[in-house]
């Protein structure tokens, strides 16, 4: 593993974890979720994290995104060490530099689709760049749904609104936690295809946790996790190869 010391590396590495260890509980009940993880997320790449239940994949995503803290080790987002930030600074990083797509409950029910999309910017009291806003909305096919409340949207539409929100502030990184987990295969496929386009067409970096091989197949690179450790990597995956690999992990 190379160490991030050069400016070159900073330019190509979007995020990294160094010797990340996470333990839940204490004493006899202690569960080690991450065992000295080292990982680098390359800029402009779509990375998928896979693994069986309890492998620590969600914990890895949450700690990389600054939503959860490590017991030891360091997390970097670009040149910022997240593990050195306090709560207020972390909130600002999440607001300004990171986009999120969760599996469910992505949207504030009292805000319209347009308001939900602009939420990270309006929280920061900034206005979205109108061209970018229109572009994202058009790409996701949400043009005629902007004035609707989340309750009036289908599951697929809701997740696309969430994706638009994740991209609206042109974040350095988008973290997605099972984004298609609650969608049917058609809606899920559309969402993942859009995420793929975001990476290809405007160089967005995305890290996604999933247990669905066909979802993971949209990624450039898959990192396999088992029992809190990185056990394998796969570049340019296909669904079949992923499925085969997963079988050996006993998922």
């Amino acid at each position: 593993m190379t160490t991030v010391t050069t400016t070159e590396a900073v330019r190509t590495i979007a995020a990294a974890m160094r010797a990340g260890r996470k333990i839940y509980g204490s004493g006899e009940n202690a569960v080690t979720a991450l065992r000295d993880i080292d990982i680098e997320i390359r800029r402009g790449e779509f990375t998928a994290i896979m693994g069986p239940s309890g492998s620590g994949k969600s914990t890895l995503l949450h700690t990389l995104a600054g939503l959860d803290t490590l017991n030891s080790g360091k997390v970097f987002l670009g040149d910022i060490e997240l593990t050195a930030l306090n709560e207020r600074q972390l909130t600002r990083v999440r607001r300004d530099r990171i986009g999120f797509i969760f599996q469910t409950f992505n949207l504030v029910p009292t805000l319209t689709a347009a308001e939900n999309i602009a939420l990270p910017l309006t929280i920061a009291r900034r206005r979205p760049d109108p061209e970018w806003f229109d572009f994202v909305v058009a790409t996701l096919g949400l043009g005629d749904r902007l004035d609707h409340l989340p309750g009036e949207l289908s599951g697929g539409q809701q997740q696309r609104v969430a994706a638009a929100r994740a991209l609206i502030s042109r974040p350095e990184m988008v973290f997605a936690d099972e984004p298609s987990g609650n969608l049917d295969s058609k809606a899920g496929g559309e969402l993942l295809a859009f995420m793929r386009r975001a990476v290809q067409e405007f160089g967005q970096t995305i890290v996604m946790v999933t247990h669905d091989p066909s979802a993971a197949a949209h990624a450039d690179r898959i990192v396999f996790l088992d029992d809190g450790m990185i056990v394998d990597e796969m570049i340019a995956p296909t669904a079949t190869r992923v499925l085969d690999r997963m079988k050996t992990l006993g998922a």
């Binding site: 999440r94 300004d96 992505n106």
Partner: peptide, 16 residues
């Protein structure tokens, strides 16, 4: 709870 968590995740500060 979940809505508040979401707002916090997308960058709303505790003060807000």
């Amino acid at each position: 709870t979940r809505e508040l968590g979401l707002l916090r995740a997308v960058g709303m500060s505790r003060i807000q």
